[in-house]
């Protein structure tokens, strides 16, 4: 694989030409916030948090789906990007009922820590306060759409890694929602293999193991690369 050289935040970086800007930046030690992206799953480009500025391109580009190019000049941290990222997180916090204080993921949540990192200390927009029922019908896991940010990691892991495609998205716009089976109770959706992968990849407390109480749920994602590399390359990474 040929290697290209690009500039990220004034630093010369080389990366294999099939890498994305996000991968190259992270390899070079730059942090770019992401929510829908998760290594091992097909990139989605939906959360828009990983937007970066690329010289000569008028639009902002989602680094998770933009491939590196020779001579590219990328900026990942500008005031404009920072402000937009802040607003995006505020919009996410406003559209559902993200009550961190009573969340199983309190303290371990990607949305919560991202908000703190970006300096979101309050939300300037109206809270939409949707009325969304919690689905606790599954024997092992619970789905709380109030805490969902529609990143679709669960859908992708269910489809791409587990192969069950029990989960999908219904509706559109602000009325989008994650469903199991024919929008039926999770416990009755027989396409669910109860593997729990969706729970582990969920960035917030929208999917969690039954029995966990406030701040008790922690998630681990090593299994993704473990499975994928094991499946494709017959290589199992013990070091991870």
């Amino acid at each position: 694989m040929p290697v290209v050289t690009l500039t990220i935040n004034d630093k010369l970086v080389s990366a294999q030409s099939d890498k994305t800007v996000l991968e190259a930046a992270r390899d070079a030690g730059f942090e770019i916030p992401t929510l829908c992206h998760l290594e091992g799953l097909t990139p989605r480009g939906g959360c828009r948090l990983c937007l970066v500025e690329v010289e000569g391109v008028p639009r902002l580009l989602a680094s998770c789906v933009t491939q590196v190019q020779e001579g590219m000049v990328v900026r990942t941290e500008t005031e404009r990007l920072h402000n937009y990222r802040k607003m995006m997180v505020e919009l996410l916090l406003a559209e559902r009922n993200h009550v961190c204080a009573v969340c199983v993921m309190n303290g371990h949540c990607e949305l919560q820590s991202l908000a703190a990192k970006l300096g979101v200390d309050h939300v300037r927009y109206d809270y939409l306060c949707p009325d969304l029922p919690v689905d606790a019908s599954h024997e092992r896991n619970t789905r709380d759409p109030n805490r969902c940010i529609l990143c679709a990691r669960c859908i992708r892991v269910c489809d791409e890694v587990e192969g069950a495609h029990c989960l999908d998205m219904m509706g559109r716009g602000i009325h989008c929602n994650i469903i199991t089976g024919m929008n039926q109770e999770w416990g009755k959706a027989r396409s669910c293999t109860a593997c729990g992968k969706c729970v582990q990849v969920c960035p917030t407390g929208a999917l969690f193991k039954k029995g966990s109480s406030v701040a008790e749920m922690e998630k681990q994602r090593e299994f993704l690369i473990w499975i994928l590399d094991g499946r494709d390359k017959k290589v199992w990474h013990w070091s991870r």
């Binding site: 495609h165 029990c166 998205m169 089976g181 024919m182 929008n183 959706a189 396409s191």
Partner: peptide, 18 residues
Amino acid sequence: IARQLKLPFSWVYGVATF
């Protein structure tokens, strides 16, 4: 329809509600 087209239920439901 899901059975005939051999598609997952959630897929069909997702398209129908979009």
